[in-house]
Simulated scan of single mutants.
Amino acid sequence: MFRRWWYRRLRKALLFPYWDGHRLRKEDGERLWRRLRTNKTLTDPVIEAGVQKDDPDAVESYLEATAELFKVERYNAETGIGLTDAELADLLVRFLNWVSQKKTKPNP
């Protein structure tokens, strides 16, 4: 009984919950992390520097890659569906904070 409870709790701990514009979604955090690390746009230092300098092309490609990473739609004004640029940026920051929290070990 304890084993089943422990595995269920562990499985929940490794799922990253987020709003995709339609519904609350949960995805495997490890898989998202691997996709993030292998994404050329999100890990390119030139694009990251362009985002820091607020270069419109760099920001646009960075946000597009973020939407692809989480498999969400970007906001469409005609339909009113999708995540805005601010929501996409927040989603990526929340995921990185979630990963950081999972990596740090609690003090005994």
Results as ranks from 00 to 15, higher is better:
M1A: 07
F2Y: 09
R3W: 08
R4Q: 05
R4D: 13
W6V: 11
R8Q: 14
L10E: 08
L10A: 11
L10R: 13
R11E: 13
R11W: 08
R11K: 13
R11H: 12
K12L: 10
A13C: 04
L14K: 14
L15H: 11
F16I: 01
F16A: 01
F16R: 03
P17I: 00
W19C: 04
W19N: 06
G21S: 06
G21M: 04
R23K: 13
R25G: 02
E27L: 06
E27P: 01
D28E: 09
E30G: 15
R31V: 11
L32C: 00
R34N: 09
R35G: 00
L36M: 04
R37C: 11
K40E: 11
K40V: 14
K40I: 05
T41V: 15
T41E: 02
T41I: 15
L42F: 07
D44N: 15
P45T: 07
V46W: 01
V46H: 07
I47N: 00
I47T: 10
E48S: 07
A49D: 12
A49T: 10
G50P: 00
Q52T: 13
K53S: 08
D54R: 12
P56A: 05
P56V: 06
P56L: 10
A58R: 03
V59P: 00
E64G: 15
A65K: 01
A65E: 01
T66D: 02
E68A: 13
L69E: 00
F70S: 04
V72M: 03
V72R: 00
E73A: 14
Y75A: 03
Y75P: 12
A77P: 15
E78D: 12
I81C: 04
G82Q: 11
L83M: 05
T84P: 08
T84C: 07
D85E: 14
D85H: 06
L88P: 01
D90R: 11
L91K: 03
L91D: 01
V93D: 10
V93W: 05
R94V: 03
R94E: 05
F95I: 02
F95H: 03
L96N: 08
V99S: 03
V99Q: 08
Q101G: 08
Q101L: 10
K102T: 11
K103L: 09
K103N: 07
K103F: 11
T104D: 03
K105R: 09
N107P: 09
